[in-house]
Amino acid sequence: MKHTISVLLQNKPGVLSRVTGLFSGRGFNIESLSVAETMEKGVSSLTLVTGGDDNIIEQITKQLHKLIDVIKVTDISETDNVEREMALIRVKAESTTRAEVLRIADIFRARVVDVSPRSYALEITGTNDKIKAVTELLKPIGIQEIIRTGTIAMTRASKKP
C-alpha cells in the first residue's frame, strides 16, 4: 500500500543522500520525493511516497527516525490529510483541438501558462489521481512534454472548536 511520509530534517550537507541512501541500501522504494525549506532556518521538510506492507512501513519510519539529522517523521497516510502534486503539461493545440484543450483545462481548473501557435502549456494542481485523469484525457490530443513534482502533503487540523 502507498504511504506518504513527511520528514522534518536539519538542512545539513548530505542529508538528502542519507535519506535516499537508506532507501536504496535497505531495498525500500521511493515513488516520489519533494524537499524544501520550512519557516524555520536550517530545517527542511521532505515528503516522500513509498510502498510496502505494515512491517516495511514500520521499518522505514523507524530507520528514518534513527538518522541523526532527522527531527520528526510522520506517516501522513495514517491521518486525515491533504495531498497535492503539480504538473506542467505541454499539449499540442492546433486549430482543430485548441478549444478542446481549453475546455479540459477549464474542467480541471488548470491554468494556461504558456501559449504558442501550436501548443499550450498547462499548470495543474491536485491529487495524484486528478493529474492522472487529466493526462489520460490530453494524451489523445498529443502531450509533448510533462513535468511533475513529487507529492506534498499536510495533516488536516482538528475540526474541534
Binding site: P13, G14, S17, R18, G21, L22, G25, I68
Partner: peptide
C-alpha cells in the same frame, strides 16, 4: 570518504 562511509557509520561529519 564521508559519502563512502555514510552507510557504514552511525554518523559522519566533514568539518568545513
Amino acid at each position: 570518504i564521508v559519502g563512502i562511509t555514510r552507510p557504514c557509520t552511525k554518523h559522519n561529519y566533514l568539518v568545513k
